[in-house]
Design a protein around this nucleic acid. Structure first.
Length: 924
RNA sequence: GGGCGGCUAGCUCAGUUGGUUAGAGCGCUUCGUUUACACCGAAGAGGUCCGGAGUUCGAAUCUUCGGCCGCCCACCA
């Protein structure tokens, strides 16, 4: 054995040994005693790291804590499962990806949904792979065979079922509401994703006829629909219910004055303007006074610019418009005064931009309402049935079914629960689980998780030279050019893996060629139907489009004017005739092939017509959405036709808030409700995670877990803090104080990093880590190593066969070891990991190494063999027992030493340990 | 506007239901190579436990008032 322990030489080797043994899986290890079927289970769901980057110290921290518990319970003989996973992390990943695009001067709004999805998918898969390796380097003894990704098929199915159940219970609804909108990321955010920052802004006092009101947002005045005062405010009694006339920027205005309790008479002048489209409070005022005052007027768009309803300010950014509007008000004399004013402004927690309250249809979850039906699917009978999501969770905490460590967070939890608002779960980004809400194309009726009969993909042929030269090409058959062939190939790529068995093509060569290229890729049969031909141009064939337009006295504008469609050229067709045959064909094929996923390869005009027919568009709308070469239109046919008769449906474009799906993690990963794992491991035991996601994640897991399964998702919530540097600063790339856990693990060993994270950190408080500290525990590794070296140096198989004569001190020392073990056990059970760690650290170094071993040294020099044997055996016992106790904290070095220790026997020949330390019994 | 946490050795932190002389690591001082380890050992210096008042035989610990630092929550136009 070398005088110093080299983690680089052993860690990978040891991890491989563990992994190959299969003991990370709960069923692999059967304890020597007791009925294996009656074993207690111990389960931790690993908080799935976001698959959008590398692991940082925070991850290393949870690995240290969770692995400690898991290894301890595994050694205790529990059926121990630590289930690893990765999170697609919707918005977070989208932001990372958007930044990456920005660097490459691209942006997601210019990409198709499929394109950006695929790219993010590849990106996350790569990260996921890296993260798995990193977790292994840190020694995580999780069951890789059960690893889950939040976008796994089975997880998505469970998430969909939950959504459907919520919908049927009346707890999920689509509502038009004022939501927080980030103009940079172009998506709605939940209450939790907003960060309020204190800001000083001008407070404008504006004259509205006889009244004056104070506002920080004069630019929203175009969206005002009323004025409001407090009903008890004596000053304004005479105006309540009356209409007042005011001079506005764009002429005279009339507003009704209403009375609402939300108005604070002490603030400003006690009068507020009501802008229901751009302020949540105002929106709610409007809802209470729907009959009296006009509804919302949208005057700010998704990019944070004023809309065309604002006249000269249209297109301006909000901040710019604010100044301009105020100037104008000053000009016309309605701006009374301006005061500086401190208030908090909602900003995007990611980019810091000011959020715009906008009115948008979104899906919400009711947090405080009881489910209004007990649908057939919910067979769960328990005390939480019929309770709101909130009440179920509150109940679990109050009755201590779920304990939070540290306990003070129970209060925080309950307080947050008290103030819950409905949860917006729609996000307008591509990356995430698409909401399984579908709408009937004609009557917009909502269908959740509808059964889909088939999908139709309508594709336009690739480019021909005539297309390129902008010449009219109706029934003339020309071939694809080189670009056209490439286009057809890329269309084929998009249609791969869609289970398509039939291609219906126009018989014209450019379509047939496109169809053949697609068929070659996806392996479907082709049938031709000449009714899908392009409009016959007759005398126009081969002429340049602009010539044709000129000849008929039509302007050369795009889209082509209606008159163009109505003309019937000599020997050709007009729009109407094409429409007739295309519709006929469509009906025919729908009758015959509606159960199959099919591709129709056709032309510009027939495709426009199909789009019009399928989606019930007006001709004008259809023309607006005309296809480019090889563009694909997708149609979904529902198994069950809508009440209105149509069977075409389209899916909501939005995706779920990430936390909606990860909120179902504990039961979804266990395959609720069918999988045996669910029975075996749910409720899980400990949810170990950071306090910063108590509301985001933990609260949602409690609510959704209870709602869906009727049982709490975990018994104990252990919250850890945020890892900080030695100056108590948050670690961040911009501060340059980030310590890469894998980097330091490489130098000092994963054991040292883990120990450094656990020592001196208590639940709920921020742990402090520095390279010095890690170096300190590397030194401890060396100490352990050398103690083992010393003990084994005195190993002599001949002496071990001699009956040892233990001294009183030996007995006392062995007794003390037992006490230490009991203490460590108790501390672990009580979730006081740092105390457990420091107990064994203290004992091992300053009792065992410094005292017991030192005292034993002279005994090895004597010829008193029974005493020598006793000295060795005492040391050996303390060493091997300490190694065991240290294992959950420092798994690698302890396993390495364990493997080097012989099994002591007074009778038989000594042999190597057969067991791996990870499954050595803690109790014996 | 509510609420939470922290304040203990030069630094970073522990400190169980109130109970001897308040602990550890790092740092500092002196000494030391002996059957492992200098990534070590021995000895040592270093404290008004944020401040005041109270309860108690006894307070770092409980109560109360105040100070500073950090954080969370809340539809302040």
């Amino acid at each position: 054995m070398d005088s110093q322990y080299d983690p680089k030489k052993v860690e990978d080797k040891i991890y491989e040994l563990w992994e190959k043994s299969g003991f990370f899986a709960p069923e692999a290890h059967q304890p020597q005693t007791g009925n294996p079927d009656k074993r207690k289970s111990f389960t931790i769901m690993m908080p799935p790291p976001n698959a959008n980057g590398l692991l940082h110290m925070g991850h290393a921290f949870f690995v240290a804590l969770e692995d400690l518990m898991v290894r301890y319970h595994r050694m205790k003989g529990d059926k121990t499962l630590w289930l690893p996973g990765a999170d697609h992390a919707g918005f977070e990943t989208q932001v990372v990806f958007d930044k990456k695009l920005e660097k490459e001067s691209r942006n997601r709004f210019a990409m198709s949904r499929e394109e950006s999805w695929q790219e993010i998918w590849d990106f996350t898969q790569l990260n996921k792979k890296n993260m798995e390796n990193q977790l292994k380097k840190l020694g995580a003894s999780c069951d890789w065979s059960r690893e889950k990704f939040t976008l796994d098929k089975d997880i998505i199915e469970i998430v969909y079922d939950t959504f459907e159940k919520l919908y049927e219970d009346g707890l999920a609804y689509r509502g038009e509401r004022v939501i927080n909108w980030c103009p940079k990321h172009q998506t709605a955010l939940s209450e939790l994703e907003t960060k309020y920052v204190e800001r000083e802004d001008p407070l404008y006092y504006i004259k509205y006829g006889p009244l004056t009101l104070a506002t920080v947002r004069p630019e929203t005045k175009f969206g005002d629909t009323a004025l409001a005062v407090n009903p008890k405010d004596k000053r304004y009694q005479k105006y309540i219910g009356k209409e007042i006339e005011a001079v506005g920027i764009s002429g005279k205005l009339k507003f009704k004055v209403i009375a609402d309790n939300a108005v604070d008479p002490k603030f400003g002048t006690g009068v507020v303007k009501v802008t229901p489209a751009h302020d949540l409070a105002d929106f709610e005022i409007w809802q209470r006074h729907k009959d009296e005052i006009p509804g919302p007027i949208n005057i700010i768009d998704e990019r944070g610019r004023l809309t065309d309803k604002t006249g000269e300010f249209s297109g301006m950014k909000v901040s710019e418009a604010r100044e301009k509007v105020a100037e104008k008000m000053k000009e016309i004399g309605i701006l009374e005064k301006v005061e500086p004013y401190k208030h908090s402004v909602a900003t995007c927690y990611k980019c810091g931009n000011t959020l715009e309250p906008l009115l948008k249809p979104q899906w919400f979850i009711r947090m405080t309402a009881a489910p209004h039906t007990q649908n057939q699917k919910s067979k769960i009978k328990n005390q939480n049935a019929g309770k709101s999501l909130r009440d179920g969770a509150v109940n679990a905490i109050k009755t201590k079914k779920i304990k939070i460590i540290p306990q003070r967070y129970e209060k925080v939890f309950l307080h947050w629960m008290k103030n819950l608002r409905d949860w917006n779960i729609s996000r307008q980004i591509t990356w995430g689980i698409r909401i399984p809400a579908w709408y009937c194309i004609s009557c917009k009726d909502v269908k959740i998780n509808p059964e889909i009969k088939s999908k139709w993909y309508v594709v336009r042929h690739g480019e021909t030279d005539w297309n390129k030269e902008k010449r009219y090409q109706g029934h003339t058959g020309t071939s694809l050019n080189e670009k056209g062939i490439e286009q057809a190939k890329s269309a084929a790529e998009k249609l791969k893996n869609k289970n398509i068995s039939l291609i219906i093509s126009s018989d014209l060569s450019r379509c047939r060629e496109t169809a053949e290229i697609i068929a070659k890729e996806i392996g479907a049969e082709i049938i031709v139907d000449e009714r899908f031909r392009e409009r016959n141009g007759g005398e126009w064939e081969g002429l340049r489009i602009d010539e044709i337009l000129k000849k008929h006295g039509l302007g050369n504008t795009w889209p082509l004017p209606q008159e163009f469609n109505d003309i019937k050229p000599d020997g050709g067709e007009n729009w109407h005739e094409v429409e007739k045959r295309v519709e006929e064909a469509l009906l025919h094929h729908k009758g015959n092939h509606s159960r199959r996923n099919i591709v129709i390869v056709t032309h510009f005009l027939p495709m426009t017509i199909i789009n019009k027919k399928m989606k019930g568009l007006s001709q004008e709308e259809a023309v607006q959405s005309s296809p480019k070469n090889t563009e694909v239109f997708e149609f979904t046919i529902s198994k069950k036709p809508c009440k209105c008769g149509s069977d075409l449906i389209e899916q909501d474009p939005d995706v779920f808030d990430t936390w909606f799906s990860s909120g179902q993690w504990p039961f979804a990963t266990l395959g609720y409700p069918k999988n045996k794992d669910f029975k075996d491991f749910y409720p899980t035991d400990v949810m170990e995670t950071g306090w910063d996601i108590l509301f985001f994640w933990v609260a949602r897991m409690v609510m959704l877990g209870i709602y869906r399964t009727g049982k709490i998702p975990f018994k104990t919530i252990y919250l850890h803090g945020l890892v900080r540097d030695k100056d108590r600063q948050k670690m961040s790339k911009s501060k340059g104080n980030v310590i890469d856990p894998l980097g330091v693990a490489e130098v000092y060993g994963a054991d040292a990093v883990r120990m450094a994270l656990i020592m001196g950190s208590t639940a709920g408080n921020d742990p402090i880590i520095s390279e010095d500290k890690i170096r300190g525990y590397r030194n401890f590794s060396t100490k352990i190593w050398n103690v083992a070296r010393f003990v084994m140096m005195n190993y002599d198989p001949k002496i071990t066969k001699i009956k040892p004569k233990f001294t009183a001190a030996d007995k006392k020392n062995l007794k003390e070891l037992e006490t230490v073990k009991k203490k460590v056990t108790k501390k672990i059970e009580d979730f006081k990991f740092h105390e457990a760690a420091s107990t064994i650290y203290q004992y091992f170094w300053h009792r065992f190494a410094d005292k017991i071993i030192e005292d034993s040294k002279p005994r090895f020099n004597s010829d008193n063999l029974p005493d020598k044997a006793a000295a060795f055996e005492t040391n050996f016992k303390i060493l091997s027992e300490s190694i065991k106790i240290l294992h959950p904290f420092m798994p690698f070095i302890t396993e390495e030493i364990w493997q080097a220790l012989p099994v002591l026997s007074h009778t038989e020949e000594p042999s190597k340990n057969k067991n791996l330390l990870i499954i050595e019994s803690w109790n014996s």
